[in-house]
Structure formats: C-alpha cells, structure tokens
Write a protein that binds this DNA or RNA. Structure first.
Lengths: 195, 195
DNA sequence: GGACCGCTTGACTGCACGGTCAAGGGGAGC
DNA sequence: GCTCCCCTTGACCGTGCAGTCAAGCGGTCC
C-alpha cells in the first residue's frame, strides 16, 4: 500500500473515509459492508481496495481521526489557561461539546473498545488524551487543590463521568449540553477536591 | 419455543447457557459460533436449536442473567442498611467486587451496549439497577447530605466512575479491588455531597 | 414388547460478505 | 494521435456461519 496519489485520488480517499465514518457511526461496523460503502458512493468495489488495504485498516483510520479530533477540541478549548483546575473544567466542557457534535461516534467508540481488534488502538488514543488530564491533575495536587490520590485514577474517574453522562443524556436523551456539562463539572471538581 | 423440559433437559439447557456465557465473555459474541459452542460441549448442533431459538436469543438470556446477578450482588451487600449514603457506598463496593469476580463479562456488557440488537436490553437492565441508586440518592438529598441536583444524573455519574475504574484498573490492569473501590467511593461521595 | 416422545445427530442449505483480478477508461504529456 | 499510468469496473471466488431437517436413539409407561 502507501500509494502515490494525485489530487483527484486524495479527494476520493477523503470521500471514502468520510462516508465510511458516517456509516460506521450510524449503523455500526459489522452491519456496514464494503459493498454498502462503495454503492452508497456509486463506485465499484475496486475503488475501495485501491485506497484501503482492508475494511479493518479503514476502521482504524476512522478511529484515529476521530480521537485526534476530540483531542484537538480539548486542546483548543484549554488554550494556555494557567489554572490547572480550570483546565480540567474546560477539558470536560470541550469533551461534552464534541460528543454533542459527534453523537453517533459515541457508539462507534464503545464498540471499538469492546472489540479485540480495535481495543488496543482505542486504548492508545485514550491514553494520549488522558495524559493531558493527568498533567493538570498533578499540578492541582501540588497546589493542594485536589486530593492526594493517584492522578491516573482520578483522571479515569473524570473520563468515566464525562463518558457516561454524554452517552446517556446527550446521545440517548438529547439533553442540553450545557446543563449536562455543568453537572459533570460540579460532580468531578468536588470529587477531585476531597472534603 | 417454550418447550416442556425434563430434568435432564433443564440440565442441558443450563450447561449450554453457562458454556456460552463463558465463551461470549472470553472471546466475544461474533467470534463465538454456534458450532464452537456445541463442539465445545461435544454435542450435535441440533441440541442447540432444541433449547434456544437462535444465537441472538441465547445472548439476550446471557445478558439478562448477568445483569440479574450483578443486581442481586448489590442488593445482598446493601441488605437493610438504613443510611442512604452508606447504601450508595455499599452498592459501589459490591459492583466493584462483582466486576472483579466476573472480569470477562465487562467486555461483553460493553459490546452489548454498542450493538443495536442488544442495546435496548442492556438499557432496560441498567435502568432497573440504576433505579435503586436513584432511590438512595433521593433520600440523601432529602436529608441534605447530597447536593440538590437531578438524582438520575448523579446516579449515572456514579455508574460512570464505577464502570470506568472497573474496566481500566480491575479488568485491564489487575489492580486490587479494595483500593479501587476506596477511590471510587471517595470520589463519588465527595462529588455527590457538593462543597 | 410396543408405543410414545424427549432428545440427539451431523450433513446440508443458503447466504452474506471480504477480498481479487483481468480488463478497460480517460486525462496528461509528448 | 500515441503512450503511460492512475483509477475504475463488477463479475467472481472462497469461506464462514446461522439455521434446517430427516433420521435415529433410548428411557418410561402400559
């Protein structure tokens, strides 16, 4: 693989990736066949295998892009905020907003995390995003504003709250992002600070 | 379906269910074929379809049993504890212990929640277990010991923390149940109480 | 010993799907 | 107008798997 692509080729590749992402997210990985993808784009099956090695490789690329997009959203929201606790809050809010904008990807992430073939990739991506949070938590611990527990564990707790609330209230119940984000932030910041 | 079964038949059915549960949990739903299940038990394929309508129905039964078992574990741990906050704590600890005892089912739950066919069943089961927590939270709110937010939302936050920590630290990293449970309880109780 | 019936067998069917490939189009450069 | 090569076509292949079924076994009851 790793073909040399003309601009036209690059555009086709982008098209396939975008369309497949949408289908995977909306209907799931297994129910979306390669035939679905190419016929949805009105092209022959050979096109798919010209640009991608396999359905599995495509999926990995879809996941990588989505995780990158989420992480970028978090980083953009945080900017150069100096206060570590505030950075944690901005991160939570940015995640919620991203989950809201990309509702259907929530399912795909959950599926990928449960499938042997994709779980490692998901873990790697999650660890990268999580490392950011761990940094903020560590700083906040030093400042004495967060309980002195394992920062990795605290960061996972935040992730758990954010993910669960997003899945249930944003994805399933269409609740208002801001309200859910407020609740998540309140719960997490108090959970972090200790009594 | 709904056959009349002799004791011998009931035993076979139990056998199939138990074996399938283990296989689904350890290797996943899709990778486990009906042929795998029956050959693992040394019986013909017809046996399977004598006791179950389809692979999908079997899976639904597996999920129902597992969710029931988890809920029973929670209820047994809580007993008739009068303090609602303590009930929440006991629930969290019981869940962690159950996740520890049934590590491999964690994956299966996550898969089922992401698959269109099984998600409704998972949601229903989760709601039942969640309703218990909501009751405790409501009581605690009345007593002024938990912030006055939507109890449903707070309960989901607890579930999020518990699930994420169990998945990451118990399932993936083999950490000590008690330590993780302590951390989850501390985070959640402070998150609930508000500052 | 015969009839009944719960239970078992395993070859077979149909089908969906990932992936292949020989053949052909068409734009760019000469 | 010729050549080159990126790109496209879609019939075809192999495989794996859920589910079927006609036939048979063996315990139980009369």
């Amino acid at each position: 693989m790793e073909r040399r692509l003309t601009p036209r080729g690059k555009e086709r590749r982008r098209q396939l990736l975008a369309f497949a992402t949408q289908r995977f997210a909306e209907h799931g990985y297994h129910p979306t066949s390669v035939a679905d993808i190419v016929s949805g784009l009105g092209v022959g099956k050979g096109v798919f295998y010209w640009y991608f090695e396999s359905k599995e490789q495509l999926m990995l690329e879809v996941l990588r892009e989505a995780q990158q997009s989420l992480r970028r959203a978090q980083q953009d929201a945080i900017g150069d905020e100096p206060d570590p606790v505030r950075r944690i809050e901005l991160g939570i809010r940015a995640s919620m907003a991203w989950f809201d904008r990309n509702r259907s990807l929530v399912n795909l992430f959950q599926f990928a995390a449960s499938e042997e073939r994709f779980a490692p990739a998901m873990r790697r991506g999650q660890e990268v995003a999580l490392a950011d949070t761990v940094r903020h938590v560590k700083e906040a611990v030093v400042e004495g504003r967060v309980r002195d527990s394992d920062p990795d564990l605290l960061s996972h707790a935040i992730l758990g709250v954010t993910g669960q609330l997003a899945r249930t209230f944003i994805h399933e119940r269409n609740a208002s992002v801001d309200e859910i984000a407020d609740a998540a932030v309140a719960f997490c910041l108090d959970g972090l600070s200790g009594s």
